[in-house]
Design a protein around this nucleic acid. Sequence first.
DNA 1: GAGTGTGAACTTATTCACAGCT
DNA 2: AGCTGTGAATAAGTTCACACTC
Lengths: 258, 258
Amino acid sequence: MATGRTHRPATRSRGIPEATVARLPLYLRALTALSERSVPTVSSEELAAAAGVNSAKLRKDFSYLGSYGTRGVGYDVEYLVYQISRELGLTQDWPIVMVGIGNLGAALANYGGFASRGFRVAALIDADPSMVGKPVAGMPVQYIDDLEKIVDENGVSIGVIATPAGAAQQVCDRLVAAGVTSILNFAPTVLSVPDGVDVRKVDLSIELQILAFHEQRKAGEEGGGEAVLPPVVREPATATQADDRKGPDGDMPAVMPA
Amino acid sequence: MATGRTHRPATRSRGIPEATVARLPLYLRALTALSERSVPTVSSEELAAAAGVNSAKLRKDFSYLGSYGTRGVGYDVEYLVYQISRELGLTQDWPIVMVGIGNLGAALANYGGFASRGFRVAALIDADPSMVGKPVAGMPVQYIDDLEKIVDENGVSIGVIATPAGAAQQVCDRLVAAGVTSILNFAPTVLSVPDGVDVRKVDLSIELQILAFHEQRKAGEEGGGEAVLPPVVREPATATQADDRKGPDGDMPAVMPA
DNA sequence: GAGTGTGAACTTATTCACAGCT
DNA sequence: AGCTGTGAATAAGTTCACACTC
């Protein structure tokens, strides 16, 4: 205020909204595809469609990064690819370790997306001695006793946990103690970490459950008036009396579902 | 659960915030663990800790479902497990199909989390004829030509896509045409679907990129002045002469990073 | 004319803090 | 005394709509 007009919006890499950060990879993917097709420029409308968001949101997101577009024209694809890559820290290579090379871990290791731009699998680690030395995705599995050494020697700061739930926390603790400060957790458990360590989780069954919620609602709603499924116990408008009315519907049945 | 008995989400359950829905599975998991340990009741504080959220948020979340707690005491674990299960639609069984039984698909099929409460894998489907008939996770892979029939005969409304990116949209279209209204997408691509169809996506490389963003920021910030890791690719101050000031920092280098 | 960049309005989500029940 | 349930306050995220630039 005092300065009248700070011409520069506070867009230092600082203070990019989390929701925006989460969409940058999406934009980057769409832009990369355009780049491969040698498309020189793209409008917010087109790019938004390719990324599955609306154009106002995209423009707003980009505005946090800076003014990278040209009015009346759009965005230069190559230029944006670079700027977003830089913002995401993908102009450097991040060595990562993956712990837990079971079904899922092995699949992830083989998965191309992992080795994509910006990341390099430095080591695969497992606690099962019979796995050690076996090649997975072209690299030998290493024993978990060497975790600290591996992290240290490779300067790893990002770890992926794909162990069973029971082992995840202790693996996490070891990774953090060894210097890892970002963790991607595929184990279905909540990890606790000290301040300064980021955890992101991917949980299949949670995603399915969220879908089931909406699915159920769709089923209950179809037809509106002529419902296929009867509305079941409409709450009497009276609400309460001697009724210890709890939830909106359905008290606990005598027998719990297994 | 026999046919109907889909509880109509009556009165209050209309409009449970999406953010709350996304956390219900988390609470459910924590509660299930308590239930297995035969813990009878739990306070919002304890449960919140187990689920990795703060207690105010948890209480607020639960308040959208109804008044399921007892003041001065806490929540009855079994009761809550049932109520949340019901809210999520897990008191019925959802048959799901999985399309794309490659590395990742097979891993997911084997993954216990999938077959967990409320879901049943009705079929594994692949487009590779050489996969067909092979048992994966104890069930034979079926050919994609039968997709429509499988969806129809099993009353499938939830589909999981684990194909390569290039095939995802067409698989999605076929699933939707066959009657699927919820899709969990593991392919690194944006799916477009008609209104009324829900899509959730899981993308490893996006998650990693988000971590890299924060990681980069940490590195750039430590010590304030002299960073341990040099930011790599220091921009040549070259670029544009007339200082058409674009972003907060860094213009495009002459050579794009691969 | 076309399309970005962005304040302002609006919506959704989180946190606070305390009244009210057991 | 203890802990839930929830309005009220705050923060974060989205959408609108239009001035401005090319």
